[in-house]
Amino acid sequence: MSAVICGSLAYDTIMVFQDQFKNHILPDKVHILNVSFLVPKMRREFGGCAGNIAYNLKLLGGDPLPMATVGQDFGPYREHLERHGIRLEGVRVFEDQFTPQCFITTDLDNNQLTAFHPGAMSCSHHNHVGDVPNVEFGIVAPDGREAMLQHSADFAARGVPFIFDPGQAMPLFTGEEFRTMIGQADYVIVNDYESQLLQSRTGWDAEEIARHTKAYIVTLGPRGSLIHTGGAVIEIPPARERQVVDPTGCGDAYRAGLIHGIMRGYDWPTIGRMASLMGALKVEHPGTQNQHFTYAQFAAEFEEQFGYALG
Rank of each mutant, 00 (worst) to 15 (best):
G75C: 03
Y77A: 13
R78A: 13
E79L: 08
I86V: 08
I86C: 12
I86R: 08
L88K: 03
L88Q: 08
E89V: 00
E89M: 00
Q97M: 08
F98L: 14
Q101N: 00
F103A: 00
I104Y: 06
T105H: 09
T105M: 12
T106K: 15
D107M: 12
L108Y: 11
D109I: 00
Q112E: 12
L113S: 11
T114W: 00
T114Y: 09
A115D: 00
A120R: 03
A120G: 06
M121H: 05
M121A: 13
C123S: 13
H126A: 14
N127V: 10
V129Y: 14
G130A: 15
D131I: 00
E136W: 12
F137Q: 11
G138W: 15
A141R: 09
P142G: 15
P142N: 14
D143W: 04
G144F: 13
R145Y: 11
E146A: 15
M148Q: 09
M148L: 08
H151L: 06
A153D: 06
D154G: 02
A156W: 07
A156K: 06
A157D: 08
V160H: 01
V160K: 07
V160I: 09
I163G: 07
G167S: 09
Q168E: 05
A169H: 03
P171K: 02
F178E: 02
F178N: 02
R179H: 06
M181Q: 07
I182H: 04
Q184T: 01
D186M: 11
D186Y: 14
D186T: 03
I189Q: 15
V190L: 02
E194T: 04
E194P: 00
L198P: 05
Q199R: 01
Q199T: 02
Q199H: 01
S200D: 13
S200G: 11
T202H: 04
G203S: 06
A206C: 07
E208H: 05
I209Q: 01
